[in-house]
Design a binder for these strands. Sequence first.
DNA 1: GTCTATATCCAGATAGAC
DNA 2: GTCTATCTGGATATAGAC
Lengths: 212, 212
Amino acid sequence: MPRDPEQNARARAERTAGILRAARRRFAADGYVATRVADIAKDVGMAQGLLYHYFPNKEALFEALLADAFARLTAAAEALAAQPDPPAAKIRAALTGLVGAIAADDTFAPTMLLIAQASLADTTPAGARALIARERDRPYAVLADLFAAGQRDATVLAGDPAALATAFWTTVKGLALHKASWGPDFRAPDVEILLRAFLPAPLPSPGGRHDV
Amino acid sequence: MPRDPEQNARARAERTAGILRAARRRFAADGYVATRVADIAKDVGMAQGLLYHYFPNKEALFEALLADAFARLTAAAEALAAQPDPPAAKIRAALTGLVGAIAADDTFAPTMLLIAQASLADTTPAGARALIARERDRPYAVLADLFAAGQRDATVLAGDPAALATAFWTTVKGLALHKASWGPDFRAPDVEILLRAFLPAPLPSPGGRHDV
DNA sequence: GTCTATATCCAGATAGAC
DNA sequence: GTCTATCTGGATATAGAC
């Protein structure tokens, strides 16, 4: 008989996290409507009805998931911005990290797709739409600032910073989509190729490094 | 009383095309499962039941749509390959054209998304999956050939042609996704920025051109 | 907290009049 | 060919036993 309230709270939090994890995969793969609550429950290993003891309904579950995804994304973006490295290094690190995360299927690609698909679909519930509208440009702003800073010391190529930020995230989203479509056949392109749109060519040092 | 068989055939073809057009928008926006046959029928302006006189079921309608989308995409890719221009010019023209098509909402972005979403979702019907598996690398192959040819005469930057092709289509898909997400707020990045990943910088002529 | 029913609703597909 | 009305199945959400 678990009467310890702390233990109860922890068990509940773990259960909730498990539901969110399963839901993230399902929603990302199938979209909101196509995902059945019963599937999520099955993935977690619980009865369908029990899931309603943790979330009031499917919509609330979806919104909790989106909020979590955005929180992680903006946290990562802002952590990057706060680092002391020069802008060009941050941009290279960011793209390398993102491509790596996508390739490793770190729940990262599904998360990107989840957001993309949610902002796309007209059927996305209103609360989720509002959340997206409120959060979506933060990562763009972070990157645009980074590009502008890099242009001031000429370590980043010319071009409207907002356009560069769009190109950056467009590349990332496209890769996530590509990975999702091709699955095991996915092979990430060399990050240095992608970076050519943003940074000057690195000096061809004798032992030139190549990612991937 | 329309007894003329030719007239009948034409009327039917037009009706079918109208259904496909409406279905393309709906499926692209909402995904397969979320799209209701009733919505498509409503968009076309016909009763729900009547749609079943043109397509046996929702799945067949979806597959017809995918087949049409791929046919158009590969036709465009192969027409491009057949042109006499040098490879670098073709690549520039292709990306410019694709970005333009996405920006103009030429049913192009929805079509890209339709394919992407269909290859993504586990719930996509088997016939559609097979179609996608059969067709999906054609556009990649066309671009990879183009990059390889351009590298032979040194008008295209170095890098594995397959990786370059992936980067190219990734960019296009990402832009389509971006457009879909941001709708009216979408502003396409300068094509020249995107091209920097693939082509050497154009000579900074006095009256340098800028797309978009 | 967890399960097994089950009520309710809604979308795909069909029937049949006109 | 076109419509309205309806059957049927499946998914969300609830009820209630344990």
